[in-house]
């Protein structure tokens, strides 16, 4: 599924001919296959994703998220402390940790919803201290833990809002007559074309989560912070979402907070484990699973300093899927366990 410059708004946005970017090389031109992982088979529901994602390799390929010494304090309680985190493009990063580890607070801090000290930069520009909507306009998109869409607006209106964030004030009173191509593409990508005129509130839970991702796509976000994007999804839906995230992640910086270990093992390129507001471990899935400190946090080994536990005492690869429900919300855990795998 390669794209031609004539389809999709992406091509216009990249403006390959009108304003060639300095760092653009011929290989980066739209129409050539996207850099990164080899092309994968497209799941049927995600047809068209490449049209939306595939042409924008020129602009942001060197962007990365860099968090240094991040600290968040609520009335004396330190929710996040000394967090360093670097996530690059093409590295699908999963952020895991028990409840209260500070994962969501970290996302809130990066997106300006809570006050933080330290530094969080994306594409070289500092995000901390800016208002949330300015951060969003700088290309940072996020989803919320509870599937958050504008429930009383239609699916199409939800996407329109995300697409029009940078609209100039005077155009706000003009009625739109046609749907922008990027919005059409996003509808198709997340499989909600048939539901476009339904209020988002009546969508199924999984569809809402896809709508959230669709909103980030039309919002032109290049750093995506996804808070439990597959919670409550069926196995098939998880698989599709994971494939979509992979494709998004090849050209954008993606951080996924997720409790589901099976999902993590299938799709994570790298994992950061948080515990009590700090980064506990970081590495590939295998590295993290064999990290004694991580094993201790997840399995609750007796109180011995983490470093002293010999790696051999715990069987390798023992961050089991069973560990996930323990730190998920009870209702969530119940749904998950009840689902066929």
């Amino acid at each position: 599924m390669t794209d031609t410059p004539s389809t999709g708004q992406r091509a216009e946005l990249a403006r390959p001919h009108a304003a060639p970017e300095k760092r653009g090389t011929p290989d980066d031109r739209p129409g050539t296959p996207a850099a990164g992982p080899a092309p994968r088979a497209t799941p049927p529901g995600l047809a068209g994703a490449d049209a939306l994602l595939g042409t924008d390799t020129t602009r942001f390929r060197h962007d990365y998220l860099e968090v240094r010494g991040l600290r968040v304090e609520f009335d004396g309680f330190v929710a996040v402390r000394d967090v360093d985190l670097t996530v690059t493009q093409g590295d699908l990063r999963f952020l895991i940790g028990p409840n209260g580890a500070g994962k969501t607070t970290l996302i809130d801090a990066v997106t300006g919803l809570v006050r933080a000290t330290g530094s969080a930069a994306f594409g070289g520009s500092e995000l901390l201290g800016r208002t949330t909507h300015r951060i969003a306009r700088a290309g940072v998109g996020r989803t919320f833990q509870t599937a958050s869409v504008f429930e009383e607006l239609t699916v199409l209106q939800n996407l329109d809002i995300a697409a029009g964030a940078r609209r100039r004030p005077l155009t706000l009173l003009r009625r739109r007559t046609t749907t922008p191509p990027a919005v059409e593409q996003a509808l198709e990508t997340v499989g909600l074309t048939a539901q476009r005129d339904l209020p988002a509130g009546v969508l199924a839970h999984g569809q809402k989560q896809w709508l959230e991702i669709g909103m980030l796509l039309v919002q032109d976000a290049h750093l995506l912070l996804l808070d439990e994007p597959v919670a409550g999804m069926t196995q098939a839906e998880r698989e599709e979402t994971g494939q979509l995230l992979r494709r998004i992640g090849s050209q954008r910086v993606v951080v996924v907070v997720e409790h589901d270990m099976e999902f993590l093992r299938s799709f994570a390129d790298s994992v950061t484990v948080m515990h009590q507001g700090r980064v506990l471990a970081e590495g590939t899935v295998a590295e993290v699973q064999n990290d004694p400190a991580v094993v201790e946090v997840y399995l609750g080994t007796p109180a011995e300093p983490a470093g002293d536990v010999p790696a051999g005492t715990v069987p390798a690869g023992t961050v089991p899927a069973d560990a996930a429900p323990a730190d998920a919300a009870p209702a969530d855990a119940a749904t998950r366990e009840g689902e066929p795998r």
Partner: peptide
């Protein structure tokens, strides 16, 4: 409907 989500979508709620 949702102030935080609106902000996160790039809308200035102010």
């Amino acid at each position: 409907q949702n102030r935080d989500l609106a902000e996160a979508s790039g809308i200035s709620s102010r």
